[in-house]
């Protein structure tokens, strides 16, 4: 699948935003501190930015409101509805944190749960497509949820180190979730790389009983919408290298930096935590790029790819 920049940006940003908002909703941090107020605003900004960038790839964005209507059948519609509904508790929480410096447990917890549901809906858009076997697994939403949670905890850790309260707990939780998330992703990659293709040129043409089917001539010389959108191919060896790089930068580096922050404490902790969050975000972008680039669409059985 073609790794469209707007979609990569959307899933990464909104994932981090929802993760951070969910962690804030749990009330682990002191809502009266400046850094937590900023974190609330930052989470909202990331979510809104992600949603806006996701409308960039639409052919007719002026009708985007229509996407809220088919929640009965469509995960994309469910995601849209949830994204908007989730704004309500998040706005209330943000208001109370920023203006009154207070944490509202009930609203906060509702917000956290709704953040989780929204991320789940995003992941299910991909996981529900049978035509893209790489995504068509329960591991896909699991990874999305874990990555969002780990990212949220990492960002919250930065805030906690800045404000100086609750930092150790946050950092340890972040450390555990970063590790668990990449372990889950590793399982996802293992599944992908040992996959027996569900559909083949033989099943796509129904000519398998005659023999081995090979594309002889494409319907057209140049690319079309389908080959541009779905014909993206990344060399296996590069994919393998990139996935290792993602684990290294997005998993190992943040864990090491978090450990440094926990043990060093004091002034050194803040830059270490910030660096950990940045590394993680970078690793996540690589992971998302691969999520698309490595996924083979069944239609490629008709295009010899």
């Amino acid at each position: 699948m073609h790794p469209a920049f707007s979609i990569i940006l959307f899933t990464t940003l909104s994932g981090l935003g929802y993760g951070l908002a969910a962690v804030l909703g749990l009330g682990l941090l002191d809502a009266s501190t400046l850094s937590v107020k900023l974190a609330h605003l930052g989470a909202l900004a990331m979510i809104a930015g992600g949603l806006l960038s996701s409308t960039l790839h639409l052919g007719n964005p002026q009708r985007a409101w229509r996407a809220l209507s088919q929640w009965r059948s469509s995960w994309l519609s469910r995601e849209g509805v949830m994204a908007i509904a989730t704004f309500l508790p998040l706005m209330v929480s943000t208001w109370f944190a920023v203006v009154e410096g207070r944490y509202l447990p009930v609203v906060g917890l509702i917000g956290s749960v709704m953040c989780g549901i929204t991320v789940y809906c995003t992941a299910m858009i991909y996981a529900s497509l049978r035509s893209i076997q790489a995504w068509n697994t329960g591991l896909t939403p699991l990874c999305y949820l874990l990555f969002a949670a780990a990212g949220g905890l990492l960002l919250a850790t930065v805030g906690a180190f800045v404000s100086g309260s609750g930092a150790t707990v946050c950092a340890i939780l972040a450390l555990i979730l970063v590790a668990v998330a990449w372990i889950a992703k590793h399982a996802w990659w293992n599944r992908l790389r040992t996959l027996v293709p569900l559909s083949t040129p033989e099943s796509a043409t129904g000519l398998g009983n005659i023999g081995h089917v090979r594309l002889f001539e494409r319907p057209h010389i140049n690319d079309n919408y389908l080959t541009r959108e779905m014909g993206f191919k990344v060399a296996r060896k590069h994919a393998l290298k990139l996935s290792r790089l993602a684990i290294l930068v997005g998993g190992v580096a943040p864990i090491v930096l978090l450990l440094m922050a926990i043990f060093a404490g004091g002034a050194a902790a803040v830059p270490a935590a910030v660096l950990a969050a940045l590394c993680y975000a970078l690793g996540l972008v690589v992971e998302r790029w691969l999520f698309f680039a490595e996924a083979r669409h069944a239609v490629m059985n008709y295009y010899g790819g």
Binding site: H57, L58, G59
Partner: peptide, 27 residues
């Protein structure tokens, strides 16, 4: 008149039977 041109239906079709019109932005 309702299509926003998100392209998800083309992704879901294993047969490649849907193509987005790039000028009109609809499926």
């Amino acid at each position: 008149s309702k299509c926003i041109g998100c392209g998800l239906c083309a992704w879901s079709c294993a047969y490649g039977a849907r193509e987005m019109d790039l000028a009109a932005g609809v499926m």
